[in-house]
Every structure is written in C-alpha cells, then in structure tokens.
Design a binder for these strands. Structure first.
Lengths: 143, 143
DNA sequence: GTCTCTACCAACCTTTCTAGTAGGTTTATA
DNA sequence: TATAAACCTACTAGAAAGGTTGGTAGAGAC
C-alpha cells in the first residue's frame, strides 16, 4: 500500500477545511464527525499538519483549525509527504534508504525510478482545490 | 511502500533465469548466490512462482528452476500481482477491500482510481525481456 | 539400494508499521 | 472560575515484512 490511512485522512481533512473556509476555526470534533474518523486518531494526524504550518490551530473556547493558505496552494504531494514520510514505491528509493551496492548494475532500478517520478509528478500536479466537491470529479486534475 | 522485497526479488530471479535460459535447470543455490539473497527466503518466493506455473521446478540431482515460457511473455505486472497480492495504491482499491460507504461521495476516489490505472498500465507494459541487461536501461520500456 | 543433491513444505520468529486509545496539560473565551 | 478546545506523552493490539528452522520427497550417480 503506497498511501495509508494517515495520508488519506489528512487529505480528507484538508478538503473538509477548504470547504468550510471563511467559517473561522473549525473544531476537531466537527471534522471527525463529518468525516467519520475517530477524534483521537485524527488529533495525531492534525498535529503533523500544524507542525508543518499547513493548518493553524487555535486553543480554547471557539478554537479549532483552519487552513494557513488558500487550498490551491497545497499540492496533494506535499500533504502526503508530510504524513506518509515517503512516497517511494520501493525501499531502495526512499530518502533514508541505505545505499544498495547493486545499484549500478541493477536491471530493475530504471523502472523503479521512472515509476517514482510518475507518482511524484502525479501527486504534485493536483491541489486540494482540485479535489473540492465543487470541481467536476475525474477530469480536472488530468496529469 | 508499494512493492516489497517479495516482488522485487521475484523480478530479479525472473531476469536471472531469463539470462540463463538454455542452460537447463538452474539450482536455487546458484540464483541466491548471484542475487545475494538468502536461499531460504528465496525458496518461499520461488514457491509462489512455481505454483503459478511461471517457473518449472525439477527435483533431485541436476534439478533446479527454469522459465516455463519465453521472457517476453511475462509482464512485470503479472509477476508482481502474484507475489505482492495487490498493487493498489490505497486500501479502498484492493480487490478484497470491504465496500466503503463513502465511496459515492468521496472527493479523493477519482484520484486514487486514476493513479491505480496508471500504475497497472505501467507495470503491464513492461516484460521481463525488457528488463534484461541486454536492453538499454531506461528508454525501451517507455509507457 | 543407498548416498547425495535438489525442490518442496509447514511452522515459527523478530522487528517494524498501522491504526488506533488513554489520560493528562495548557490556553482561550464566556 | 467553568468550559471548550488544542496540545502532549505514552501505550497497545494486530498485521505485515522479512526472514529462519527443521524437516520430507523425488531424482540421478555409484
């Protein structure tokens, strides 16, 4: 599995917040309810997004979360890299991979590299705004 | 990680055997040595390929493994599906996934479906013959 | 007929990742 | 000061990854 629940939920939250922009700070409880995701689990995911300054969290009564910037300024790729760590299709291409001694002669490496590039370009070509329900699904984020 | 060692090793074995076609049956020991993979672990992987009739195993002295068909008749996709089970980038798209109640309104589903199609088409467009060292790496299995 | 080489098979193991849960602390508003 | 919220640390059950152990069965050479 390339993308786990962490990344998928993060994207859904981003879209949810994008659709409720201008309504001030949205409490976690509300998002969790709408998205049918456990509050406590979601908390862990939103923490990552706040740390990366994608979301702004406000404490106390009337607090909650909101997007730091406009939805068209966030690519799906950037959100997934934050939450998933790496989007590499194979271990050898992960940033923290130990250098493989067979690299120079590996007959499969060019294939993996090419796929990695395809995936990266795909995710980086789509923004949160593209995913919003107001968009026609399936055709507007053509690669 | 989309593709684990199981799938990667399987591909390397297929290429290895393709490059030693016409030399009769190649014992596991030899492959393991050349590929620097533990014999015992490789055994588990080859079992899958034999079960799927991609390789033919012969026991006893002089035994070993050989490809059942020509290398250009095996796509990378078919080998990976055998060994990895599923190549779906997200859980919702796996064959054995339980039907998600949000499917109809999910704003991210079209993106996942599109990526899944891209990945499948990529892997199905490359054969073991394309990966052999005699090929120029990087340009001949253009999608 | 038995020795050796080989594939084949079932079970087990360790480490890491996934998908959470529990319980408390801090900050802001009413 | 009560309450609503984010924030923080730690824990956990289960699954998957990446193997290992110890055998059984078949085929050829002597």
């Amino acid at each position: 599995m390339l993308v786990s629940t962490r990344g998928r939920y993060a994207l859904r939250v981003m879209i949810d917040l994008a659709e409720h922009q201008g309504e001030g700070y949205i409490p976690l409880k509300e998002i969790a309810e709408r998205q049918e995701i456990s509050e406590k689990y979601l908390e862990n995911i939103l923490k990552i997004l706040v740390r990366n300054k994608v979301l702004i969290g406000l404490r106390g009564k009337g607090g909650g979360y909101r997007l730091a910037k406009s939805p068209d300024l966030y690519t799906v790729g950037s959100i997934l890299r934050m939450t998933e760590g790496s989007l590499a299709p194979v271990a050898c291409l992960a940033e923290d991979a130990e250098r493989c001694s067979r690299m120079a002669s590996c007959p499969t490496l060019p294939m993996w590299t090419k796929l990695d590039k395809m995936i990266t370009e795909f995710f980086d070509s789509i923004t949160i705004a593209d995913l919003m329900s107001s968009s026609l699904p399936g055709d507007n984020y053509v690669i």
